[in-house]
Design a protein around this nucleic acid. Structure first.
Lengths: 106, 106
DNA sequence: AATTTGCGCAACCAAATGGTTGTGTTTATA
DNA sequence: TATAAACACAACCATTTGGTTGCGCAAATT
């Protein structure tokens, strides 16, 4: 077990994915987010902490309220990884095609 | 805690992400995959079980060997979710623009 | 026929995860 | 000024996760 607390782990939990989707519609305070979930405030706070620690949300204090905003740029890392894997996959076939083409020549 | 064992959870672990990337280069048996990792065979087997259960890899018996192949189509679900969140995000600004434009008219 | 290779199954373990409740503090509001 | 709202912190808990070791079995190899 190495490091933890990265974007991949952040979006692994369905509740956290829902939080991100909710915040995609606009910034909200904790109480407002809570409305959509059937968990305790502390439970939600823990999820927000995970999201905050990996930069998926930014939190700003405003009076007694704590506004949470989604930082969707962080998802670039995920998309980037997926694309990299897919590139390797397609290159595998390109190499095979090349090999077959060269074999044909002989 | 609801369901588990989906693609999001599959790619949450760094070791499993490396397995997927390795398999993107081509199908391998368990021993071959093991070469790149510093864990026990059983540890690796558990990761492969997770990946298999969510359809990220397909496993085929061949004699005494067990060939593992990456099924990258499954990553569509991840990309789909990311895109959906981003769409909501941009629509938020479009709505704001529209509102501002209409306010200006009056 | 004996040995090696490739693998599965089960038990076990520490740490992380996802959740809870209780208490306290600061900021608004009546 | 008393009260309510919005939150943080800490302790606790069951389950899951990621890892291990030991044993056994079937397929290849010598």
């Amino acid at each position: 077990m190495v490091e933890r607390r990265d974007v991949f782990q952040a979006i692994a939990d369905p509740t956290r994915r829902m939080i991100i989707q909710k915040l995609s519609e606009g910034a909200l305070n904790i109480g407002q987010i809570l409305e959509d979930f059937d968990i305790s405030r502390q439970g939600l706070t823990k999820h927000l902490k995970v999201l905050s620690e990996c930069g998926m949300i930014s939190v700003t204090q405003k009076g007694r309220e704590q506004f949470c905003e989604a930082r969707l740029e962080q998802l670039d890392e995920v998309v980037g990884w997926v694309n990299a894997s897919r590139k390797t996959w397609t290159q595998r076939f390109e190499k095979l095609d090349k090999f077959l083409a060269e074999t044909k020549k002989q």
